[in-house]
Design a binder for these strands. Structure first.
Lengths: 215, 215
DNA sequence: GGGGGAGGATGATCATGTTCAACGAACGCG
DNA sequence: CGCGTTCGTTGAACATGATCATCCTCCCCC
């Protein structure tokens, strides 16, 4: 027992075996993700073939499928990574806002700003979101649940601070806000709206939606 | 000039050449549509392969592409045909309603009732709608424009009849209603809601959306 | 009525997502 | 250490959507 099994590192992190094999697999996985992110961005979802990605990552076609069930899962993984980065920003934006409208426009603005920087990836994400496996669908829904909750928190705060009536159905309201945002998000992507255009539209819509709820 | 060219039929219909060849092509097209509708319904979008469809229609694979640019266009064609059938029903439902809410729930109910009868086709339609060519996207949007207009008419009537305030932004309101319906429609399909469940949900949401607009 | 041309149909062919048997290196047990 | 097992990797093979040279039938003009 001298050199083998890198388990030596002061453990206490996660009960995960860090054998050489596992490390290699992890590196492989990361190489695929890096290559895939680049190619998806450059060529869109359909344009980036598994063969290209595998070659760019320096491995055979089949190796990709050892780390990812299918192409859409690989893609979802990339989106999820992005999402985790912006979720913190969205939370922050909502927290520092003064009014409900500010909070909602703030957090949606953050998300869209982030995504609009890489339109090809974003477009691809929309196209894929409704296409592929139920697994991908559920995963996407799960990601969104967090954002949905963020909206709920903003609404609740507005109630507590007296901006909205006490008897509103916050869940229902949050759902409507979210539905409208998603619809606009799609339009924005397809028609190449700026962040400002999206927010202006959303602002108008929020006025209508909250019309009956303001205190 | 005795038997050839079926142009003999008392014309005056459309300035379209009814040569034997054109007729044959039209028949081919219809055979493809019939076979495709059946197979899409039975097996979903991915499950129904072009080869299967072609064989069921009694022709070669390539022949399908002579009538339709690609698989998604063939599929869109089927949906559009359906849509034209229900559009009349939706118009009727909206017209005979007494209130705005009745009108909207009525026309959405008609659409969903119709579709829910053939869930596989419907599921497939949702998945395809965001996937394929921009051409398909634009075509779908065009279809929806009619429904969108229907909503606008219902709102306008409500204003005229004094159910809604005169100064509402009908276009904005219609858009929100539509966005919310689409979102619910997707949820309904994926989660297998009944028509009643969908309408109940929509009814609640309409209350919120119209809260500030009622006269 | 006949010959040149147009255009629909065919099926081999290609590109791509995905699977799978086979390989070999890492693993872990004695 | 030695050895059977596990498991990541490979590349050929498969299914499918789409294309295209080619064929052949029908059209149309002379």
């Amino acid at each position: 027992m001298s050199f083998v099994s890198v388990n030596i590192e002061q453990g206490a992190e996660t009960p995960v075996k860090l054998t050489r094999r596992a490390l290699a697999k992890q590196r492989t996985r990361e190489r695929v993700l890096a290559a895939a992110r680049r190619l998806f961005s450059e060529r869109g979802y359909e344009g980036a073939t598994i063969r290209d990605i595998a070659q760019a990552a320096g491995m055979s076609t089949g190796a990709v499928f050892a780390s990812f069930a299918d192409k859409s899962e690989l893609f979802e993984e990339i989106l999820t990574a992005d999402y985790e980065v912006i979720y913190a920003q969205m939370t922050q934006a909502a927290r520092t806002a003064k009014t409900v409208d500010e909070a909602l426009l703030g957090l949606f603005g953050v998300a869209y700003s982030f995504h609009v920087e890489q339109l090809p990836l974003l477009r691809a994400s929309i196209s894929v979101s409704w296409t592929r496996s139920e697994a991908a669908e559920r995963r996407a829904r799960n990601d969104l649940k967090h954002i949905f909750k963020l909206i709920g928190v903003a609404l609740q705060r507005a109630v507590d601070e007296g901006q909205l009536k006490k008897d509103i159905d916050a869940k229902l309201l949050a759902e409507i806000v979210w539905d409208v945002y998603v619809a606009n998000y799609r339009r924005a992507v397809y028609d190449g709206w700026s962040v400002e255009a999206l927010l202006a539209r959303l602002s108008d819509q929020l006025k209508v939606i909250f019309a009956g709820a303001r205190a």
